[in-house]
Simulated assay, not measured.
Amino acid sequence: MSKFNFDDTETSGIWWSTNVAIKDLCLELKEDTNCENSEIVELLKSITESIDLNGL
């Protein structure tokens, strides 16, 4: 799946709940570290690249 619609009325519950969980953790990270949104985006991109290279 390359595109996700995170409207819980249109998607599988696991995809929606995963999106909510990640977003909540990013908000907690932002509050704890006072980092910028762009820093969180870079972190998520780094995680994505790691998964692409090494798998889960």
Score class of each variant (00 low, 15 high):
1 M>I: 08
2 S>G: 05
2 S>H: 08
2 S>A: 03
2 S>P: 01
3 K>G: 04
3 K>A: 12
3 K>T: 11
3 K>H: 06
4 F>G: 02
4 F>A: 06
4 F>D: 00
5 N>H: 02
6 F>G: 00
6 F>I: 09
7 D>Q: 03
7 D>N: 13
7 D>V: 01
7 D>Y: 01
8 D>A: 03
8 D>V: 03
8 D>C: 04
8 D>S: 10
8 D>T: 03
9 T>C: 03
9 T>E: 08
9 T>A: 11
10 E>I: 03
10 E>R: 06
10 E>A: 07
10 E>H: 02
11 T>Y: 00
11 T>V: 11
12 S>G: 04
13 G>S: 15
14 I>Y: 13
14 I>H: 09
14 I>R: 02
15 W>I: 04
15 W>Y: 11
16 W>M: 01
16 W>L: 01
16 W>C: 01
16 W>H: 10
16 W>K: 01
17 S>K: 14
17 S>W: 09
17 S>G: 09
17 S>C: 04
18 T>Y: 04
18 T>Q: 09
19 N>M: 06
19 N>L: 01
19 N>R: 01
19 N>W: 05
19 N>G: 03
20 V>H: 06
20 V>N: 09
20 V>C: 09
20 V>T: 13
20 V>A: 11
21 A>L: 15
21 A>Q: 10
21 A>N: 12
21 A>R: 11
22 I>A: 07
22 I>C: 07
23 K>L: 08
24 D>N: 13
24 D>H: 08
25 L>Y: 07
25 L>V: 05
26 C>P: 00
26 C>M: 12
26 C>N: 02
26 C>Y: 00
27 L>I: 06
28 E>Q: 14
28 E>D: 14
28 E>N: 06
28 E>K: 15
28 E>I: 08
29 L>G: 01
29 L>S: 02
29 L>P: 00
30 K>C: 01
30 K>I: 05
30 K>H: 01
30 K>M: 13
31 E>W: 02
31 E>V: 10
32 D>H: 12
32 D>K: 14
33 T>Q: 10
34 N>E: 13
34 N>I: 02
35 C>M: 12
35 C>N: 00
36 E>D: 14
36 E>N: 09
36 E>P: 00
37 N>K: 04
37 N>E: 12
38 S>N: 11
39 E>K: 05
41 V>G: 06
41 V>K: 09
41 V>E: 15
41 V>C: 08
42 E>P: 00
43 L>H: 09
43 L>Q: 08
43 L>T: 11
44 L>S: 06
44 L>V: 10
44 L>P: 01
44 L>K: 05
44 L>G: 01
44 L>H: 02
45 K>D: 14
45 K>H: 14
45 K>F: 05
45 K>S: 09
45 K>W: 05
45 K>R: 13
45 K>N: 13
46 S>Q: 14
47 I>R: 07
47 I>N: 04
47 I>S: 07
47 I>L: 14
48 T>G: 08
49 E>Y: 04
49 E>T: 13
49 E>H: 09
50 S>Q: 08
50 S>H: 14
50 S>D: 15
51 I>P: 00
51 I>D: 01
51 I>C: 07
52 D>F: 04
52 D>T: 10
53 L>D: 13
53 L>M: 15
53 L>I: 07
53 L>H: 06
55 G>P: 03
56 L>E: 15
56 L>M: 07
56 L>Y: 10
